[in-house]
């Protein structure tokens, strides 16, 4: 599937001193990093280090969580994404998301994929079919489901197929960035493998950010890796915890010559 790379995907996603809060608790504090276009960037770190919060902040999905608020900036295509002037709906169209647990809609496979294009006002049956077909091809699901597009509900597929359906669904609105929140954690090794292969395919056209628990996965698929860790402090007898970005760099470099002792400990601890 080697097409000419899309011209549009050429902007860096620059996160600048961003903190995410849920009510009174800080999930992650002053994160600064730049995500390169058409590369896979992996966020790794222990549970509760805020990597998912950062990911959800990028397409402003946190807006929907009661009490959540974000400080700092994310610059993309010359806009600060948290600017009043930015439309979160259009933003989420451009920055798609694949979730930890596959969440196909309780509709047919076709309707699942056509959902996004329909939102954009595309009603023409022929165009819709073309989009569905191509998106499923991109997600390497077409051959498995081509005969039950209308018959089967998205929920009747296997876990790995469901996740690929969700990826196809995200691709159908032609996003520029795809955020993946531990997309393989609910899947078996074979399904994981196919998703990873798919990511390597897609990165020609899309910027991909993936949160993962699995460091081998980060090593296998990503070009860049950001390591987050948990900070703790006692205040007034209450233990405060929040996440911070420790190190960010090319995956190979980060795994082979980590700059920080923490990173080295985490990596070796896991590998050792």
């Amino acid at each position: 599937m080697s097409e000419t790379p899309k011209q549009s995907v050429q902007d860096k996603l620059e996160i600048d001193a961003m903190s995410v809060w849920y009510g009174e608790t800080c999930a992650v504090r002053s994160v600064t990093l730049a995500i390169n276009p058409r590369r896979i960037t992996a966020f790794i770190g222990p549970s509760g280090c805020g990597k998912s919060s950062v990911l959800r902040a990028i397409n402003r999905l946190n807006d929907l969580v009661p009490g959540a608020h974000v400080h700092g900036k994310i610059n993309y295509q010359g806009h600060n994404l948290y600017d009043e002037q930015v439309d979160p709906v259009e933003l989420r169209r451009r920055i798609g998301m694949v979730f930890q647990k596959p969440n196909p809609f309780p509709k047919s496979i076709y309707d699942n994929v056509a959902y996004g294009p329909r939102l954009l006002g595309i009603r023409d049956r022929k165009s819709l079919t073309a989009i569905v077909e191509h998106s499923l091809q991109q997600a390497a699901l077409w051959d498995e489901v081509r005969n039950d597009l209308h018959k089967k509900s998205g929920l009747e597929l296997s876990g790995g197929q469901q996740q690929r359906l969700c990826i196809a669904r995200a691709l159908a609105v032609e996003p520029e960035v795809i955020l993946m929140d531990e997309p393989c954690s609910a899947l078996d090794p074979i399904a994981t493998q196919s998703i990873e292969a798919l990511m390597r395919d897609l990165v020609h056209d899309y910027t991909i950010v993936i949160v993962t628990h699995n460091m081998q996965q980060a090593l296998r698929v990503s070009d860049y890796t950001a390591f987050f860790n948990i900070r703790k402090r006692e205040q007034d007898g209450v233990e405060l915890r929040w996440g911070e970005l420790v190190e960010f760099g090319a995956t190979k470099q980060l795994f082979e010559e980590p700059q920080h002792q923490e990173t080295a400990d985490y990596i070796s601890g896991r590998f050792g």
């Binding site: 294009p117 595309i122 023409d124 165009s127 073309a130 989009i131 191509h134 091809q137 609105v173 032609e174």
Partner: peptide, 12 residues
């Protein structure tokens, strides 16, 4: 694949 891709791109 090429054809549907082209049509998808055009429609979108």
């Amino acid at each position: 694949v090429q054809r549907s891709g082209a049509e998808k791109a055009a429609t979108l």
